[in-house]
Design a protein around this nucleic acid. Structure first.
Lengths: 223, 223
DNA sequence: CGGCGCATGCGTATTCTCCTCGTCGAAGAC
DNA sequence: GTCTTCGACGAGGAGAATACGCATGCGCCG
């Protein structure tokens, strides 16, 4: 697999490039938007990873340009944390996924794989588990077709769990991914939000969608 | 590495089995599709090699069934030369590779290795011994496919034993690894938890999964 | 007001201790 | 070589202590 990685922070760029290459992904690393556009339009990459903010042509503009040319290559956007509107605009423009910085390189590699595979089958922007379904693009959640309202945090917590169904996440991991800070070991935020999620998603407790693993964390799916 | 090989031509089957085993791959060889389905759904193989044409349930059907059950085990399909359409259908159904008969066993072995390595993200966290299987990511334990509930300590004790099957661990070692402190020489915690593990894992004492080595410690596996 | 973060008390699964009984093995006598 | 006895070690049960996660309520901020 060969991809184009566009990011202006030199350190992050070389770090990510190295990490991805260790996992057998060929990476062309570029820090300038105009150059990136040049490459993206001439080389048939398997996927692009675009930072939104780069000198020259920015990530969103590159994405828009490609889609106007009917170029359907898978694209993952990199955004600073908390720029939710941009995430959504990006998805509207035809991005396939987004990641907030900072991120783990392994996770980026994993998403690249899914995104590339998914393009063949084309069920983009939807994550499913059991009768639960969330739409990244519209930021909507439904259970057996019935819509459910979630707050931002609730949504992102659920999103994180649904990206790796059945996998158990420690509180720390969840906290770092969803909240983005290092965990204050004295907070019980995660527990509280798990409980709020359950209340909305799992209303009648008929089916235990979120499993508690005592002493460790939580996972989507039954025991 | 342990795989399931399904192929109805007896000669080819035994030939391939022998060849793969010479390369250090454990092979369960089966010629009937229904039996194969049975095995594939109960034993956590590292990969499957399925001939498309076999008596009983055919290869494509087995593959489809597994994927519907969200079983993501690597699958290599065997096809007669010239049945190209089936290859393609197979890959759409989620096969990882295919080979046309006749083939060189060495090549099959090589492809098995690549395919398994590629999926390693999903299977490297599985520990197996006999029909016992624990999944580190999901923190689940199963015996012959039946789920077993373990508490945190129980799980970690079992994990420790399973990381070096057949090896005998002294109480001290176990205590230090699983509990993390230096052993208080007056406690019998390890014994207690070994007993609890046995009760859950080895319910009927039919098979002695955990062996006691008097005066020394414990080990996974029979004498 | 709704979303969010923080703090507190409560119920309970889990852990640990304590104690007894059964079993294994070594050594000694015949 | 065989049988017996004794000591030590591990098995197992049952209750007390603990830590963990759940629920709930409150104040704050946009």
């Amino acid at each position: 697999m060969r991809i184009l990685l566009v990011e202006d922070q030199a350190k992050l760029l070389s770090f990510a490039k190295k990490g991805l290459e260790e996992q057998g992904i060929q990476v062309d690393a570029i820090s300038d938007g105009d150059e990136a556009w040049e490459m993206a339009t001439t080389v048939p990459y398997d996927a692009l990873v675009l930072d939104i903010m780069v000198p020259g042509r920015d990530g969103l503009s590159i994405l828009r340009g490609l889609r106007e040319k009917r170029n359907n290559v898978p694209v993952i956007l990199l955004t600073a944390r908390s720029t939710l509107p941009e995430k959504i605009e990006g998805l509207n423009l035809g991005a396939d996924d987004y990641m907030t910085k900072p991120f783990f390189v392994e996770e980026l590699a994993a998403r690249l794989h899914t995104v590339v595979r998914r393009k063949a089958g084309d069920s983009s922007h939807l994550l499913r588990f059991d009768d639960l379904c969330i739409n990244l693009l519209e930021r909507k959640v439904s259970r057996s077709g019935v819509n459910i309202d979630l707050s931002t945090r609730e949504f992102e917590l659920l999103e994180h769990l649904m990206r790796s169904p059945r996998r158990v996440f420690g509180r720390m991991q969840i906290y770092e991914h969803v909240w983005g800070y290092n965990m204050d070991p004295e907070t019980n935020l995660v527990e509280v939000y798990i409980q709020r999620l359950r209340a909305k998603i799992d209303k009648d407790h008929v089916k235990k969608l979120i499993r508690t693993v005592r002493g460790v964390g939580y996972a989507l799916g039954e025991s």
